[in-house]
Design a protein around this nucleic acid. Structure first.
Lengths: 359, 359
DNA sequence: AGCGAAATTTGAATCGATCCAACAAAAATG
DNA sequence: CATTTTTGTTGGATCGATTCAAATTTCGCT
């Protein structure tokens, strides 16, 4: 009885087993971690004692300190945890990361937090061997926070000037050009851009000034790609409205309102994410505008949902799963080097784009 | 130079900082964990030394051992890790778990493994305060493995006789009855059941013997609910084919083949998961059969995809998110008690069910 | 029985922090 | 100025394991 109550109060340690079985803790440890080097008789005795005392097996907390390696990678974002399961882009990315982790038996720790302070704490105290960072809104702070841990980490999206951080992303300029050329070739001449952020916490029409001082160079590059290609077709890019959203419902709808409130509405929308593109399709339909009859839309990302929408989305597809796989592997077999990989994109022409309406 | 190389070889510990700054390790620790109790002058000096030596801050591995609490819950399954991001049921469940974790700032560790041995190892060495178990195929082994850790855990789906394990699930009998009654009232008289497993690694038509000796009582209960309600309508349940699948594509299609290969095909299918129901809709369409014109189908789960299929799926909806929330909370504020919660279900009549075809 | 080799076992050291009782120094009080 | 109180600092103990060189036991063989 008494022993039962004591058991409740303080979990049994390996040392307790050793003492009870009359062996050193070295031997007791071996019984669990390398049973083959312990004499059978002793091994069974120790195991019996452990069983009888209700020992839970070597506590990973203790083992960890000695071993040093956690065998898990952290995946962090500034969004709430549910982002990993809700967002289509994140989900495909996680599938790639999962694959790489499954292959080596590593675990995944999801790190996030409601507010800044908790995020900092969670990053600081995450039990992981390295991080994969979802660098969306607030990505630069996430990088700073993570850097402090002095663990290997990879930023998804090479949205940073900073060449000292490992990153994997796509060729934004090339992808954007593909999208722009496609629309220009269909005869479109009046454009609008639904843009990702150039810096944190911004929303609204982006001025050239904002673009020039962009923190997120990925956003800047996509815009540069759009503009460069459109110029080639003789289009005056200075007049194209570029609306910065937070890549979610509210600001995207606000952006569309703002864009269509101006005179001469666009016949083509370049969206820097499928998310925004899909929201745009929905918004346009609600306004009674036909896609692609009245307005054509091109997305960016290549999430599975894009193929299922009505009309299906024409988009610049990133090799999302492959990016995830590589990111995870970069952490798993980290060699101390900083790597920056740029992946190619594919262009999927589907139903959301068509010839420019006859004016 | 030398110090730089040494720094590479062995990460700097708090003790190194303490020595270099000429304070005790106790004080050095306080500088980081309770800065307010250290004299400003000392605090700044220690911080400066830490910064200069490239200290990464208190290592959570060390802290953990003292603190005892990880502040993360493990979510485990026998499926590969990608299951959490691919499977609609899992995703909604994870959203609920995420919510509860976000609220308390806890992290989520995903635990899984390709093979049995690795799974055992991963469960044994997961750094978590408790587990939420996805008890699908192989659930009983997962429970056994987890029990050994002597940490709090909750089984999702009260698929176990074992009243000593905490679990959250739905009222399977009531849910099944709802589905059966709906179809019976629509005039259906010839049924087939796409069943979940009664025990591990089984597939094919289930005999009454198999049903009687079910390991997964959740499956048994759903079947019992179906049968009880159908009997009430004077239907001879003994003739109803019950095909056990592994709740995935292959075995479900095999089941449909087998069911429709028999004489007198069913006009109504009771599927114990939306997954199977959706696969069935697809299979039937491919066979040229109309849903619900020729065959009606009722699912079970209430995943979001069911609302988007063509036709949208009539189904028994579990409060999945709420189950996830509660499961996580059960671990987060664990009080040592074993809890078994049974949640109610809702019945959504959508487009996959209609009147029985005139024979 | 005696001897060296092989197989086991031991116990101190280590991993990297936090906690806390005891002590010291400075400040407040009589 | 002596005494109490407050504030800051110290260093040993602890969390729960693993590791490894050294000590011990066992075994095979003559």
């Amino acid at each position: 009885m008494a022993s039962l109550l004591e058991g409740q109060a303080r979990p049994i340690r390996l040392a307790d087993i050793a003492k009870a079985a009359g062996v050193s803790h070295g031997t007791a440890s071996n019984v669990f971690s390398r049973p083959e080097i312990v004499r059978a008789e002793v091994r069974e005795r120790v195991k019996a004692v452990a069983e009888q005392m209700g020992y839970a097996g070597p506590d990973p907390k203790g083992r960890l300190l000695r071993a040093g390696k956690v065998n898990a990678i952290g995946v962090a974002t500034t969004e709430p945890l549910s982002y990993f399961f809700d967002d289509p882009f994140a989900r495909v990315m996680m599938a790639g990361i999962s694959e790489a982790c499954d292959a080596t038996g590593a675990g995944i720790a999801l790190v996030s937090a409601a507010n800044q302070e908790k995020l900092a704490w969670n990053i600081r105290s995450a039990l992981v061997d390295g991080f994969v960072l979802f660098c969306i809104e607030g990505g630069s702070r996430l990088v700073d926070l993570t850097r402090e841990r002095k663990l290997p980490f990879v930023a998804l999206e090479l949205g940073f000037q900073d060449e000292t951080v490992s990153a994997i992303g796509v060729d934004n300029v090339a992808g954007a050009k593909l999208a722009a050329r496609h629309l220009a070739e269909l005869g479109h001449r009046r454009f609008a851009v639904l843009s990702l952020g150039f810096a944190d916490n911004r929303t609204g029409f982006a001025t050239p000034e904002v673009v020039r001082s962009a923190v997120y160079t990925g956003t800047r590059d996509r815009l540069a790609g759009y503009f460069e290609e459109l110029s080639r077709f003789g289009i005056d890019t200075a007049t194209i409205p570029v609306y910065e959203t937070e890549n979610e419902e509210k600001s995207t709808r606000a952006g569309l309102e703002a864009i269509f409130a101006r005179g001469e509405p666009p016949t083509a929308i370049l969206a820097m994410s499928d998310r925004m593109a899909l929201i745009a399709i929905d918004w346009l339909r609600a306004k009674g505008l036909d896609v692609p009859g009245d307005v054509s839309i091109v997305g960016f990302d290549g999430v599975p949902d894009g193929a299922l929408s009505t009309p299906p989305l024409t988009t610049v597809a990133q090799p999302i799963t492959e990016i995830g796989r590589r990111a995870a592997r970069m952490i798993l077999d980290h060699d101390g080097a900083v790597r920056r990989e740029t992946m190619g994109v594919e262009f999927f022409v589907r139903g959301s784009t068509g010839p420019a309406p006859k004016a």
